[in-house]
Write a protein that binds this DNA or RNA. Structure first.
Lengths: 399, 399
DNA sequence: ATTATTTAATACGAGGTGCAAATTAAATTC
DNA sequence: GAATTTAATTTGCACCTCGTATTAAATAAT
C-alpha cells in the first residue's frame, strides 16, 4: 500500500489533467473540469503550473461550439509539442525501427534499419541500436541532448521495473541489464519495455483503444506477446514481468507439450519452407511474411495448411485470454496478420468456437495492420507516459 | 483516472494503518509508522480517529521486545473484535456453509446446510440462503441488526461491482441481481462475490498468502475458479467479472473444443461413475470426492485414470496461468484435491513439463485443503474489507 | 527517594491540496 | 454604452501530512 501525501494527490490530478489535454486536443478549462471531475479552481491551478512549466500552450481560437455564444470565450489549451522529445524504437529480429517524437507523440523522423540480428551478442546489438538512435535524432534535426528519454521495445520477457531482459529471441545472452547499458551509451535515460506493451500503450494513446480503459492486445510476430490495459494502466503482471504468449501450452502431444509458439510463431509457419532457396533469402531479410502471402495467393497448399493451423491455435488462445480478462476489445497486431484470409478466417472460426457462450459478444476482435512505425511510436508513448507522470520542475506551489 | 482529494488521501492511509494493525496483531504506533512509512504524527492522528470510532483498542501489555528496555513503554493497538460483525457464506451445489465473524475475522459461529440445490429457481435458493444466514446469526447469539454486512461466495461468473450473477451452475436462471434480492430479504447490505475470489482474499488475510502482495489461486470444485491478487488487491478483470477457468480451452478434439471443465470438473471425474448405485447417492449428498478417494485407495482403475487425466489438464492450465501472471505463489484449493496422490502427482508432473524453462522456479505451488469454513471466512473477509475501506463515521478531523 | 536518561506519543506550526463562494475578465446582446 | 452571460482567477476555509518541540511514562543511577 503506497503512502498517500499531498504530493501524490497533486501528481495524480496533474496526470489526469495533462492526459485529458493531450487526448481531447485543444480543450478549455471548464471542459477539463467536467471530464476530470475536478473543480475549476483546481484545474486552473494545475493548468497554471503546467503553463509555467511550458508543458501546455494556450490558444485563443478553436472553440468548436456554436459561434454565437454569449460570455467570455474559452481559452483553449493544448499540449506543447516542443516541451520534450523522446525516441521510441522497435527492435525485432530482422529490423529496427526508430522514431523521434515530440511531447505530443507526433513523429518527427523515422528510420528503419533492415538488419538481421538473430541471437547476436549484446555488444553488437547495442552498437546497432545506439547507431540507429543517433542517426534518427540527427534526421530530426536534433542533438541527443535535446532528447529527454528513450524507450526500446523488444520481444521477449522484459522486466520493466529494472530494465532487465530476462530472455529475448534476439539476444544470445539472458538476464541482461540493457537499460543500464544503453543509458550510459546514450547518456540519456533509457527504458526497456516489451514490444507488446509498447504497442498496447500506443493503441491507448493514438490508436484503436483511445476510447477504452481496459483492453487486451495480442501481438503476432516472431514472438507472441500480450499486452493488458487495466484501468488506463498497463498491467505488467506480478513482478513487473511481461507476458510471453508463445510459452502457453495448447495441449499434450505424443512428444511432450505443444506450445503456441510451435504452432503460430513466425518460424513455425515459415519453418517448413526454410530449405526452399527463394525463401530462405526472404526470411533472412525479414520479408518472410510478405512472401508467404504471395505464395498463399498462388495456392501453396503447404503454407495454407500452416496458416490455418496457426490461426486455429491463436483463435483458441484468444478465447482463453478473453475468458480470463473479459476485455471489451481485443486488438490483434503483428506480421502474422499478413498471412491473410486463410489465417484470419480460421482464427475467427476457432475463436467463435472456443469462446464460452456466456462471454459471447463481450469482446470485440479488432485487427490492426499498422506498420512498424506505430510500434516505435508506442515505445515513444511509454517514454512520454513517464514524463507525463513525473512531477517535472515545478512541483511546488505557485511562486 | 479517479480524482484525488484529501478525503481519498485519508482513506488510503487509514486503510493502510488499519490493515497493518489487523495483520501484525497488537502493534505499537512506532512500529506502524515504520511499516506504513507514515510519520508518527500521522499515525497518531489516524489511530486516534480509529480509537474514537471504536475500531481499535489499546492494550498496555504485550510488548514483545526485551523486557529490560528503558523509556516509556509502547502502547499496543489491536483491532476491536466487536467493532462489527459480518456473515460470510459459501454457497455450493451440494451444501451451504455460513459463518458469522467479528471485525477481526474470527469465526463466532458456523453452520453447514448439506442441501443439494442444483439448478434450483432463484426463489428456492434465496429462501435457503436467507434461512441459513438467520440461523447462523442466531447461533452466534446475535440478531440480524447486529450484522453490518453479508457476503455470499458462489461459483460461476459474478459481476462483483453490480452484484449480478451472470451465470452460475447452481442457478437455473442467468443474469440475476442476487445482491439486491438478498439485501432486501435480509435488510442488510449484501455483497455477491465469486467463491474463488472470496477464498483468495481469505488466504491473503488469514491463510497461505498473508506475506504476499501478489499471488494466484486456483479453485478446483464443481466449477474451476481463479482468483488473482495484484498489489494487495483482488484483480477482478476488466469489467469486474470473475474468471471461470472451466471455460478455458485445452485443445481441439475430434468433436469440437475440449474445455478444462470437461476434463477436470467434479462431474467430469465422477461422471463415468454416475450410474453406479452406491455412488449416485454419495454424489447427491455432496460427498462424491470423499468416496472417490476411498475407491482410489481400493485401486479402482477407471477412477484413477480420470484423476490422472484431470491432474494433467489442471497442471497444464496452471502452467499457462503462471506464464501469464508470473505470481510468486499459486495456491490450489477445492474438493478435487481430495483425489489424492494420483491426481496431485500427475498435476505436478504436467506442470513441471508445461512451465516454460524461463519461468521455472518463479512460482511455488501450494496445496491447501482447508475446510468449507475457510471459504466462508474468506467471504467474510470480502465483507470486512469493504468495511475497512469505508470511511466509517468519523471521516472528519479530530473533534 | 530523587534525579537523570531514554523512549513513546502528542501539540503545534508550516506547507501543500482541493473546493465553494466571491470577484474579476472578456465577450455578446440590447 | 450598459446589461448580460460565461470563463477564469482570487480569496478564504477545511483538511491532510510532516518536522520539531514538548509532554508522558517508564528504567537506571545517585
Amino acid at each position: 500500500m503506497k503512502t498517500a501525501d499531498p504530493e501524490l494527490m497533486r501528481a495524480m490530478n496533474r496526470l489526469s489533467v495533462l492526459d485529458t489535454i493531450r487526448r481531447r486536443g485543444p480543450i478549455s478549462r471548464v471542459e477539463i473540469s467536467e471530464r476530470t471531475e475536478l473543480s475549476t479552481t483546481t484545474v486552473s491551478a494545475i493548468t497554471g503550473s503546467l503553463l509555467d512549466d511550458g508543458l501546455i500552450l494556450t490558444r485563443h481560437e478553436g472553440d468548436i461550439r456554436n459561434e454565437t455564444v454569449r460570455g467570455r470565450p474559452r481559452v483553449m489549451l493544448e499540449v506543447n509539442p516542443d516541451a520534450a522529445r523522446v525516441v521510441g524504437a522497435k527492435i525485432a529480429a530482422s529490423r529496427m525501427v526508430f522514431v523521434v517524437t515530440n511531447f505530443r507523440g507526433d513523429v518527427l523522423s523515422k528510420l528503419t534499419l533492415p538488419i538481421r540480428i538473430d541471437r547476436q551478442p549484446i555488444a553488437v546489438i547495442a552498437d546497432l541500436v545506439e547507431d540507429g538512435v543517433r542517426r534518427c535524432v540527427v534526421d530530426a534535426g536534433l542533438s541527443l541532448e535535446d532528447v529527454d528519454s528513450v524507450c526500446l521495445g523488444l520481444p521477449g520477457v522484459i522486466e520493466h521495473r529494472t530494465g532487465h531482459i530476462r530472455s529475448s529471441p534476439i539476444f544470445r545472452e539472458i538476464n541482461i541489464d540493457f537499460a543500464a547499458e544503453m543509458s550510459t551509451r546514450l547518456s540519456t535515460p533509457t527504458i526497456v519495455e516489451s514490444d507488446a506493451h509498447a504497442i498496447t500503450l500506443g493503441h491507448h494513446w493514438f490508436g484503436k483503444a483511445r476510447d477504452l480503459q481496459d483492453m487486451v492486445l495480442i501481438s503476432l510476430e516472431q514472438t507472441l506477446g500480450l499486452g493488458v490495459l487495466h484501468g488506463n494502466r498497463l498491467f505488467r503482471g506480478a513482478g513487473g514481468l511481461s507476458h510471453n504468449l508463445g510459452d502457453l501450452v495448447l495441449g499434450m502431444g505424443p512428444q511432450g507439450v505443444i506450445r503456441l509458439s510451435s504452432q503460430a510463431g513466425e518460424s513455425a509457419i515459415l519453418g517448413e519452407q526454410q530449405t526452399d532457396g527463394r525463401f530462405a533469402e526472404a526470411v533472412r531479410l525479414g520479408r518472410g511474411m510478405t512472401h508467404v502471402q504471395a505464395l498463399i495467393k498462388a495456392d501453396d497448399d503447404r503454407l495454407i495448411g500452416a496458416a490455418v493451423r496457426a490461426g486455429e491455435a491463436v483463435g483458441l488462445t484468444i478465447a482463453n485470454i478473453v475468458t480470463l480478462f473479459a476485455p471489451p476489445r481485443v486488438i490483434l497486431v503483428g506480421s502474422s496478420l499478413a498471412l491473410g484470409e486463410p489465417f484470419l478466417n480460421s482464427l475467427r472460426d476457432a475463436y467463435a468456437l472456443a469462446i464460452p457462450p456466456s462471454l459471447k459478444g463481450v469482446s470485440e476482435l479488432v485487427f490492426d495492420d499498422s506498420t512498424d512505425d506505430f510500434w516505435a511510436q508506442g515505445a515513444a508513448a511509454v517514454a512520454l507516459y513517464e514524463l507525463y507522470e513525473s512531477p517535472w520542475s515545478t512541483t511546488g506551489p505557485a511562486l
